[in-house]
């Protein structure tokens, strides 16, 4: 069991990184755990680097920012290059297959076909963020947040017409970890 998880999600603007972080934080508070979500972004609404962070903590959360994430998600090469050094050495790295990484590391690595799965299984790269949420959920584990709560959070936070597709994406994300 955990006391505190600090997650950093990164990619490029427009990939829905912030929404993914909001869904995780939303689910955590629905589960009765403390959570805080922050982000940083450049001036551009699309493209450019995007970073969102979630802290999930059984205790009170004071400092709201993530310094040394336990879990780092990188959907692009540039976000990996920028943030990999910040990852806790006992942490977990989740990267898209397209990212070239240094395999010689202490942290655990999941190299997953997130963008490819979005395109081939769901027909749109738009759901890569929710596939990532599925993968993160599978890693964090059911003992932290229940699946029902995750599904409810996704349902409430994504645009109404895309709920089914996003729930499918969530399942695909889980499958990337659990097979």
């Amino acid at each position: 069991m955990f006391d505190k998880i600090e997650i950093r999600l990164s990619g490029s603007g427009g990939q829905g990184i912030i929404l993914a972080a909001i869904i995780l934080a939303d689910a955590a508070i629905e589960q009765g755990i403390n959570a805080i979500q922050t982000q940083s972004y450049g001036p551009e609404a699309r493209g450019g680097a995007s970073k969102a962070e979630v802290i999930i903590n059984k205790n009170e959360i004071n400092f709201p920012k993530v310094v040394t994430p336990n879990i780092l998600l990188c959907l692009t090469q540039s976000s990996y290059d920028k943030y990999v050094a910040s990852l806790d050495k006992n942490g977990i790295l989740i990267v898209d297959e397209c990212v070239n990484i240094n395999m010689d590391a202490d942290y655990k690595i999941y190299k997953l076909p997130i963008l490819e799965t979005a395109q081939s299984k769901l027909g749109t790269s738009m759901v890569a963020n929710i596939i990532s949420v599925g993968a993160l959920y599978a890693i964090i584990g059911q003992d932290v947040i229940s699946k029902d709560v995750m599904i409810s959070s996704i349902t409430h936070r994504v645009p109404p017409v895309t709920v089914n597709k996003n729930l499918d994406a969530f399942e695909e994300g889980i499958k990337l970890i659990k097979g």
């Binding site: 909001i22 934080a25 508070i29 403390n34 959570a35 805080i36 979500q37 922050t38 709201p64």
Partner: peptide, 9 residues
């Protein structure tokens, strides 16, 4: 900005 843009309960 920290407080304005953070999300919490």
């Amino acid at each position: 900005e920290t407080v304005g843009h953070m999300r919490e309960k």
